[in-house]
Structure formats: C-alpha cells, structure tokens
C-alpha cells in the first residue's frame, strides 16, 4: 500500500479522535465545571458526577491516547525529526510536544485525581481537595495548550501560510 494513502488514513483518524478528545476537554472546561458549581449549590451534582463524568472521562482519556498514536503514525519515519525540531519538522514538532504534554496531563494528572474526586478510588477529604485543584489546573493547562497545539497542527506540516519558512 502506498505510504501517502496510509498517511491520509491516519490523518483522517487523527482528526476524528482529536475532535473527540479536545471536544470533551472543552466540554469539561466550558460546560461541566461551571454547571457542577451550580448543581452542587442546588443538590443535583450527583447526576453529573455519577452518570456523566465517568463516561465522559472514559472517552476522553482513550481518545487522547488514540490522538497521540495516530499523530505518531502520521509522522512515521519523521517522528524523531519532529520531536528533535529538525528543519521543516520544527513547527509540527512543537505541536507534537504540546500534544505529548497534554497526553501526560490526561493520564498522569487528570485521570488519577478524577478517580479520587469521583469516589472511584479511596481518598480522604484532604486528598480529594488536593486532587480537585490538581485535576482542575491540569485540565485548564490542556485547554490553554490546545490553542497553540491546534495552530501548529493546522499550520505546521502541510498548510504553512501563516508561519511557513
């Protein structure tokens, strides 16, 4: 099979799972966090924390991994050139690093702390309070990083109108 064909398939799948990941990230930050504040005030938060959040987090973390893997597949043999910011691969390489930091935040900071917050893992009240702040800031950091990441993704590799060399 031609490599351009495979790259096209991976690029398409990368966008599909990337939309799922970043869509859920924006849902958490722009919808669920503010809604949960209001729901906690009127005693209806359990609907979100019990039924919505665990399912959203399931799709979120696996979509994050799938996005990284399909991104790595697009880079293919240029993976090292991108991650070492070589020549024309520097732009998409910085985007790939941002995506990698975001994947780390999802699996190492957000998911383990959300397990404590949602009661999926045992934690004291003090641990839950700390977990809330860590998960919140990691999620907000990812929202911030998604903006340059998407800029470099849409301008770095094949559409260099804005920052091309």
């Amino acid at each position: 099979m031609e490599s351009a064909f495979l790259e096209g398939i991976f690029r398409w799948l990368h966008v599909v799972v990337g939309v799922a990941w970043i869509g859920l990230l924006y849902y958490f930050n722009f919808v669920q966090v503010p809604a949960l504040k209001n729901a906690t005030a009127d005693g209806t938060a359990s609907g979100i924390t019990k039924h919505v959040a665990p399912l959203a987090l399931l799709w979120f973390r696996w979509a994050a991994l799938a996005t990284w893997l399909t991104g790595a597949a697009i880079l293919g043999q240029n993976f090292v050139s991108a991650f070492t910011l070589q020549g024309e691969w520097a732009e998409i390489g910085v985007g790939a690093w941002l995506g990698t930091i975001m994947l780390f935040n999802v699996w190492v900071l957000i998911w383990p702390n959300q397990q404590k917050i949602l009661g999926l893992k045992d934690a004291t009240d003090k641990e839950k309070t700390a977990a809330r702040r860590i998960a919140f800031l990691a999620s907000r950091t990812n929202t911030m990083l998604s903006i340059p990441m998407l800029f470099l993704m849409t301008n770095g590799l094949s559409h260099k109108g804005l920052i091309g060399l």
Partner: peptide, 30 residues
Amino acid sequence: MKNPLDSIVGTIISGFVLTLILAYILKNFL
C-alpha cells in the same frame, strides 16, 4: 497575582499569547 487559568477567559487569552510566542520563536529562531 491571580492565576489566569482560574478563569476561562484568562485560559483562552493565555493560549493565544502562548501561540504568538511560539509562532515568533519558530519563525525567527528555528
């Protein structure tokens, strides 16, 4: 100083500022 990530607007503005900084570095230094 307040953490800009505590507000949605602060988070978005930080993202755009970071984009400009990275684009400048890429265009001029890499």
